[in-house]
Computed example of a mutant assay.
Amino acid sequence: MFPERLRALRQGRGLSLPELADALNQSLTDYPRERANTGPQIGSWERGVNAPSYIEMMKLADYFDVSLDFLTGREYTEIELDDLFVSTAKLNFDGHQLSSKDKMAIYGMIKGYLHGKQLETNHEKVQSGELTLPLDKI
């Protein structure tokens, strides 16, 4: 998955292999112990012959502004919103970064919506006879 994603990102920017190598080499000041990248080296990554180091992966992710998860092909089929809202991750919506207060308010709205939906579903089940509740709970 990584080779395909790297090739798609590079070609999407209209870069040749040497151009991408040059772009990555500009970040060597952030990674002083790394050697310069070359076009053939990146080509070997795209063909799956070799794999980049962790630092090289970080450089690629930074350059293309993508996560390491995306770059390596990890896909999430399910995300628990509880975890997302209580995480320290910066959440953005419509170009605005949400504050902690915003995140908690939105979290509360989602919980309220789901609670109301559950009550509505239970009420419908009671009326159709699928669910029976004690009379004091209706």
Rank of each mutant, 00 (worst) to 15 (best):
E4Y: 13
L81E: 01
Y113C: 00
L60N: 01
E56L: 07
S100R: 11
G95D: 01
G108K: 09
K90W: 10
I42T: 03
I106T: 05
G43W: 07
L98T: 04
A61K: 03
S16M: 06
T29E: 13
I138E: 06
F85S: 00
S87H: 10
A21L: 00
M1G: 10
D136L: 13
R10S: 02
K90I: 09
R74I: 13
Q118A: 14
R35C: 05
M1L: 07
R7M: 08
E120W: 05
L84Q: 01
D22W: 09
T29I: 15
L9M: 05
V86S: 10
I79Y: 11
E56V: 12
A23H: 06
E120F: 06
S67L: 06
A36W: 12
K59G: 03
E4M: 09
L68K: 15
S100C: 10
T132D: 11
E120P: 00
P52F: 05
I55K: 10
A105H: 14
L84R: 03
K125P: 01
L91A: 05
F93K: 08
A8L: 14
E80A: 07
P134H: 03
L6S: 00
K59Q: 09
S99Y: 13
E80S: 07
V126I: 15
F85G: 01
G39P: 01
H123M: 14
W45I: 11
R33A: 11
G116T: 07
G43A: 15
P18E: 05
L24I: 02
S99F: 08
E46G: 07
R35W: 09
H123C: 03
P3Y: 08
S53W: 05
L28N: 07
V126L: 09
I110C: 02
I79V: 15
H96C: 09
E34H: 07
T38Y: 13
Q26M: 07
R5C: 08
P40W: 04
K103D: 00
Y31V: 09
E56P: 00
L60K: 06
S99R: 05
I110V: 11
A51N: 06
A23K: 10
W45M: 05
A21E: 00
T88W: 07
L68H: 08
L60G: 02
R47I: 05
L24M: 02
L133P: 00
E124W: 13
K137G: 01
L6N: 03
P134G: 14
F93T: 12
H123P: 02
I42E: 00
K111N: 05
K117Y: 03
V66H: 03
A23C: 06
I79M: 08
N50L: 12
L135Y: 04
F85A: 01
G108S: 04
R10T: 04
G43Y: 01
Y113H: 00
T121Q: 11
D136H: 13
K59I: 11
A8S: 02
I106M: 14
L6Y: 02
